[in-house]
Design a protein around this nucleic acid. Structure first.
Lengths: 204, 204
DNA sequence: GTCGAAACGGACCCTGGGTCCGGATTCTTT
DNA sequence: AAAGAATCCGGACCCAGGGTCCGTTTCGAC
């Protein structure tokens, strides 16, 4: 709620400084949890009070950073060309979307990690997650014969969770392209068996 | 590492008391992060020192609790009858395993949540996760035509993450049986398109 | 230039995980 | 059974880090 932006130039300058400093720190430091709010303030040449007034709390800062990084991707999805843009047929767009999410998480590992694991509320209540999920579900719903769009969207997104990605990169040394391919393959499988009206469906 | 158990009866008694108290607190309290170590100690009628000596740290306590709850399931899987036991054919066993995981998380929401979100290391380094993943991958590998067993195992398990389950229960009011069915359906889809030798496979 | 409003910043508070050590218990030995 | 050694108990204590407070400074409007 302390998000309304002031018009005073010092406020604006400081906000930018903090954002930049935080960005730098999060990409530099190994683990997101050893970049402290005091660190950010110091790196930005600003007092803690300023930092908290501008962003409310730690989560607020993380969100602001995340949103700013996310913007280009958002653009590409809302008004961009295929395979991400809205003109793409659903069966192609779903893998493209998940690939975009995966790449985004790969490019912003530390940040995504910090955002998902700062305890304040599960990641599922974050508005950016709701956006991804809503969009994905909507696209899934356009695929004939596919049910449980809501759950499926959750399950697919779960495969791109930041800590999983981090684990695959750091512990299993999985290369970027391998990961993308395997995720694509996985998504394909999930979409494949949506039985066209009279296909050899499943049952239980 | 301070896990070796002593033979002194007061130590044993206290260990049990702590376990019981923690168990009670975690199922009682709404969110796992407002059950503090001091709370547990108090509820068990024990000093904090005792608690930390017995379990090392918060994660240790959580793990101990988790393992104890997990034991019966582990038994059912290692030496039980189908559909969970080792005699089950892979295509049936995989859904059964994931259903078991889901049910376990449903029955131990708070605890699983606490364990997954206590920042100390990603959930993927926990030995119990490694167990699930290793087993699942092994079973997946026995399914002919299915590739990427490692990744697939991760992706399937991701669909049962504690915070996702919690979200589905609390925010989306999804009933237990619905969730089980949807997960089963999802798993089926993933397994289905492992093309029997000459099926209409995918490519890239 | 003057004045009120808004922002600044760092000292301060508080929670909660984790440690320490003097005193109480328990096991062993004779 | 009694002494001695080893172990455990427990709560006072420490510390990091998120978040707040308020006297001081800066801004911009008049």
């Amino acid at each position: 709620m302390p998000e309304r932006q002031s018009s005073r130039k010092d406020a604006i300058r400081n906000r930018k400084a903090v954002l930049a400093a935080a960005d730098a720190l999060f990409t530099r430091r190994e683990s997101p949890e050893d970049v402290t709010m005091a660190d950010v303030a110091a790196a930005a040449g600003v007092g803690k009070g300023t930092l908290f007034r501008a962003f409310g709390d730690r989560a607020g800062l993380l969100r602001a950073l995340y949103e700013s990084r996310l913007e280009p991707v958002g653009q590409a999805i809302e008004t961009g060309p295929p395979p991400l843009g809205p003109a793409t047929p659903p069966r192609e767009r779903v893998p493209a979307l998940l690939d975009a999410v995966l790449c985004f998480k790969l490019d912003n590992r530390r940040l995504a990690l910090a955002l998902e694991e700062d305890g304040s509320g599960s990641p599922y209540r974050a508005e950016h997650y709701e956006r991804w999920h809503g969009l994905l579900r909507a696209v899934l719903e356009q695929i004939p014969g596919l049910t449980d769009s809501g759950f499926t969207a959750h399950a697919l997104l779960a495969a791109t969770r930041a800590d999983l990605v981090e684990h695959l990169v750091r512990e299993e040394h999985l290369a970027r392209e391998s990961m993308r391919q395997q995720l694509a393959h996985f998504v394909t499988k999930v979409l494949a068996s949506g039985p066209p009206p009279q296909g050899p469906a499943d049952e239980e």
